[in-house]
Design a protein around this nucleic acid. Structure first.
Length: 183
DNA sequence: AAACGAGGTTCCT
DNA sequence: AGGAACCTCGTTT
């Protein structure tokens, strides 16, 4: 995947989406022919409109089609650890600014259950004072959970904030902790 | 414990 | 171009 492949705003992009159950509530899965483009969460059907609007705002010029049959296999694979294959990773389509993409790629290297802090990510990017910018970029991550934004904690390990709710962040960390324990 | 300012980047007007 | 917002951090009341 090459991020520069798409114009800002998702111009000319066709995005298929569908809502599927997940361990963390109902998941909105978005995909292009190139791979997974978006993943977001809501508590119930009443929240669908809001998160769909939230995601569409990220790529206002893209076209959207509700095609649950197209996104269902992706949802199944994302949330079933038995289907995770390091040698054949999911194809991801990261759409964002250079800074955002570098932050997200840093997160993708985090090991399962491994935590870091906003400041540490900023330092890794050579901008030790950009912790807040990292927070903003992480918060704009369109691939919630797949890009492990929930593994970024405040300095000292405090769970500081989460776009989709602190409760969900804790749920993800607990779910991963259970995985690690089981092996 | 709460309030404050610096800080990098993006979004909106 | 200007201002506000953001999943922060360190320092000061």
């Amino acid at each position: 995947m090459s991020p520069g492949e798409f114009k800002a705003g998702g111009e000319g992009l066709e995005i298929a989406f569908g809502f599927h159950p997940s361990p963390f509530g109902e998941a909105l899965v978005m995909a292009t022919p190139r791979g997974l483009a978006g993943l977001a969460f809501c508590d119930d059907e009443s929240g669908r409109g809001a998160i769909l609007a939230d995601m569409r705002r990220r790529w206002p010029r893209a076209g959207y089609l509700e095609q649950p049959q197209a996104t269902a296999p992706l949802a199944a694979r994302i949330f079933d650890p038995a289907l995770w294959r390091p040698e054949a990773p999911l194809r991801l389509v990261l759409i964002g600014s250079d800074f955002e993409i570098s932050v997200w790629q840093t997160l993708l290297r985090l090991p399962l259950g491994g935590a870091t802090s906003y400041g540490a990510v900023a330092a890794h990017l050579g901008k030790p004072k950009a912790a807040r910018a990292v927070g903003a970029a992480v918060g704009r991550n369109p691939l919630s959970f797949v890009v492990p934004c929930h593994r970024v904690l405040g300095k000292g390990g405090a769970i500081t904030g989460y776009h989709w709710g602190l409760t969900r962040k804790r749920a993800m960390l607990g779910w991963e902790a259970g995985l690690a324990k089981r092996g």
